[in-house]
Design a binder for these strands. Structure first.
Length: 234
DNA sequence: CCAGACGTTGTT
DNA sequence: GTCTGG
DNA sequence: CCAGACGTTGTT
DNA sequence: GTCTGG
């Protein structure tokens, strides 16, 4: 699945990589980010006909929700059901987005009830990539309006399956325009985009459990675990 | 996703 | 155990 | 037509 | 917002 991720590239590099999207005034985010957690602000591209680089809060709140709080955290949406679920179907038709990242974390269940081992997963190229997401507005328009999002997941590819059964949907650049188009579009065609990414190889590395604590946002979260110490620990 | 909190009442 | 916070 | 429901995923 | 039930 995807319950934590990274965007370690600096603001300039992100804006350069997505220069076809106009940075919104509030789009300045404090990068680099080594441990982005639910409820925090993420960097995203949305479109109302023109593409915009914006900030959204991670954890989708349906527009019809009576209160913005008191909710289970809608941080992920299954590709298999996203078109039908009441919480997502409206956003799936009208408010698809790209959520920018350069890696994410998976917690691998260990045998014998040992603590889960976190892993960082990124592209071997280290490029920033785009996860398929949905977003919503909640509350009266204006300063207080809440803008939230969720990350779509699919079955894990063969390489990642040993870590976890699910992975975030990563879109190839060729698909960005089709995914972002604000019109409802062809549900079948959109659904076809939501599959395990295999266009580029992944780099997977075990990392320190320091990443478990969402308050810690340091490069130690992505530093490769010392192989010797790791072997000694087994 | 994981970490951490969660202590009660009555009285001022 | 369950809920909230990050 | 209106009323009322619907909130998610992943884990064990 | 959208779907189902009456």
């Amino acid at each position: 699945m995807c319950g934590r991720f990274t965007l370690t590239a600096d603001v300039g590099a992100v804006q350069a990589a997505f220069s076809w999207a106009a940075p919104a005034p509030e789009a300045m985010f404090a990068g680099p980010r080594y441990n982005i957690a639910p409820t925090q602000t993420v960097c995203a591209v949305v479109s109302d006909g023109s593409n915009q680089l914006v900030q959204l809060k991670w954890g989708l709140v349906p527009a019809w929700s009576k209160a913005s709080q008191i909710l289970p955290p809608l941080i992920n949406a299954r590709a298999e059901t996203v078109a039908e679920k009441p919480s997502f179907r409206s956003a799936f038709r009208h408010r698809r987005c790209l959520i920018l990242a350069d890696g994410w974390f998976e917690w691998q269940v260990q045998p014998n009830g040992k603590p889960k081992q976190p892993h960082w997963v990124g592209l071997h190229s280290r490029h920033v990539f785009a996860m398929a997401g949905l977003w919503e507005k909640w509350g009266p328009p204006g300063e207080t309006e809440l803008r939230t999002c969720t990350i779509i997941t699919c079955e894990a590819s063969a390489v990642l399956a040993p870590l976890h059964a699910r992975m975030p949907v990563i879109l190839a650049p060729e698909s960005y325009a089709d995914w972002l188009r604000p019109q409802p579009g062809d549900a079948q065609a959109l659904r076809a985009l939501l599959r395990p990414f295999d266009a580029e190889p992944f780099d997977v590395r075990p990392v320190s459990t320091i990443v478990n604590n969402a308050r810690i946002d340091s490069d130690e979260c992505v530093r490769p675990l010392d192989p010797i110490a790791q072997a000694g620990g087994q």
